[in-house]
Nucleic acid binder design. Structure first.
Lengths: 334, 334
DNA sequence: GTCGATCGTCGAAGCGATTCGACGATCTGG
DNA sequence: CCAGATCGTCGAATCGCTTCGACGATCGAC
């Protein structure tokens, strides 16, 4: 493996000059720069990451903590993760993957050993034990999701409050007078994961604003859970003409359950989902939905992190506006 | 941040002694070991990863390359990934996440900069361009999946040939005389991803062995694709009494399609799936299935890697035996 | 009782980069 | 035409750890 000294000799310059060519931190004549670059190519030189990290006090690696738990839609997590990796690479950084189960100790470890320069945490809860740790670590961090007290932190997420409201607005506009929200499994609410409660809040508030009847229902992420909720819902509220679903895995089972109950979508029942576009387009009928912009969130999270790493100020809270796409699953009530 | 020298002073020993306490590479008296460990705790010492990597020529990081492409079931990938992370941590290693899209250059980069000690590659194709790169990199590697020529490589995967055969064996035993395999989307076959063709081979061979009629059908991973295949299949082969499904996303849509076509499972049609247990248990009726042991594969992949890193010899090929669980979706033909 | 091993610890030499101050050479402005 | 900036490059120090050889002390064997 070629070292910087080899390159320097090959190009007839000092090692420091090679370093400056690479980092651009001092000006170098066009001519020597070319000569150095040629030597780098000729020798296939690649700087040693550890040496670099030691000398510069920068590892060019960011940690990404992914959730392992139940009740969260896995493909969305994967979308986040890959978009974070891709965005990080565009900023010349790599991504170290951590799982929830190492918990706070994991954060302490990767920061304490200078393994990573910064941290991205997904699936933040309202009272997340990692938040205080993050605050007292000196490393920049970005949270995907909002804790109860986001002071001094940089957080980003879809504006679920607005998303919940947007669904109701759309349905109200169509003329619906009673709507129901079918949400996450109970454990998600018990954990006080922010996104679930925020959707509920936006949904409820908008319904009140429009003066229409509304109810909220947790739903297990299984086919049986979907069936149960669908049945109960239709029995309890015969006048129900529209539902909002915010729970990816049960979207399809719910549609099936409604169909079996003799309610056709959208003629007898309008359905709006909060889910990734792929899922909404994949079902039959295609669903009117508010997209979960996983890729956008991942990309922006990295952007915020880089801003902080480079000493720029980053906004404390970033809420992405929801975008509702009308597809085939909503219509005026009959 | 405390350094090893601080710990050494605090404990009244030489820095090297601290290092040996941590690494266990030389014997240390019980007493000084305790003293050193106490100082480490007192100062909250955490070794600098970069310095360590530089001096020891070991980063204690493994790279994991995850696929980004279509036609592969995302939750399974995520299961692999998390089990790799967890297993790696048990061996005191971390995981650097790479995506397919950096391709071979990414492998060269992380190996060349000594960022990682070893590499795990998922979703290997029969003629994977990364294989030659892996061979010429000096770093140990483990492939999840098998290329056409696995010589000199360490590969691990579920034995899909045996899995395909196991499904047929089970159906033949029940008395079925015509079976169909509903497989991956066409693009997966075109890529020559090993697992798809191996399942097909095992399926076909077993059917021949039992002397029963068999056909194989690619299937787009959409609801429409499922519907189409189901309809065509039933029209083409009126005597069909059993199907094997090896394509997670369409499992539920297929079941729905069969039901709509008036075929009830398992009375009119037996269904065996090759999919994660969670999915098989989640549907109604619960599916007889061969599990995709993602977690086991991830864990063993890490084990193999560690063996190689520690100079032990690792087997070239590891094929995990399939395990078929009988649930409610298979029965003798009527 | 002595000699060679073994044990526990130390000191110093790297590992391979970055970065700071220094230093000629070239510009610039008055 | 000269003082002071600026530019391009160099050399040396430094980052924090591991590891090798050395060395006194303890041990076991004869």
């Amino acid at each position: 493996m070629a070292k910087i000294e080899d390159v320097a000799k090959h190009a007839g310059v000092a090692p420091s000059t090679v370093s400056y060519v690479l980092s651009g931190k001092r000006s170098i004549t066009q001519e020597t720069r070319q000569r150095v670059l040629a030597s780098i190519r000729a020798l296939g030189y690649q700087p040693h990451a550890g040496a670099r990290a030691l000398a510069s006090n920068r590892s060019n690696v960011v940690a990404l903590v992914v959730p392992l738990r139940t009740g969260i839609h896995v493909p969305v997590i994967m979308q986040f993760a890959t978009s974070v990796v891709i965005a990080a690479r565009e900023h010349d950084h790599d991504v170290l993957l951590l799982t929830q189960n190492e918990g706070e100790a994991g954060l302490r470890r990767v920061a304490g050993t200078s393994m990573v320069d910064a941290i991205i945490v997904m699936d933040v809860e309202l009272h997340d034990p990692r938040v205080p740790v993050l605050k007292d670590l000196d490393r920049p961090a970005v949270l995907i999701g909002f804790p109860a007290d986001p002071d001094g932190l940089t957080c980003i997420d879809l504006d679920f409050t607005a998303a919940g409201a947007a669904c109701v607005d759309h349905l109200a506009e169509l003329g619906h007078r009673r709507v129901a929200l079918i949400g996450s499994p109970p454990e998600v609410y018990e954990r006080e994961t922010g996104f679930a409660s925020r959707t509920t809040a936006g949904f409820t508030e908008a319904a009140a604003r429009h003066g229409i009847a509304a109810s909220v229902h947790a739903c297990e992420a299984t086919q049986a859970g979907a069936q149960k909720v669908a049945t109960e819902l239709l029995a309890e509220h015969p006048d129900l003409t529209a539902v909002v679903v915010h729970n990816e895995p049960v979207v399809a089972p719910l549609l099936a359950a409604f169909r079996e109950a003799g309610r056709s979508v959208p003629d007898d029942l309008s359905v709006v989902a909060i889910c990734p576009d792929e899922l909404a387009e994949y079902t039959m009928p295609a669903l009117t939905s508010v997209a979960i912009p996983a890729e956008e969130v991942g990309r922006q999270a990295v952007g915020l992190l880089m801003a902080k790493l480079n000493g720029r100020k980053a906004p404390g809270a970033t809420l992405l506006s929801p975008h509702l796409t009308v597809r085939a699953s909503t219509a005026p009530p009959q």
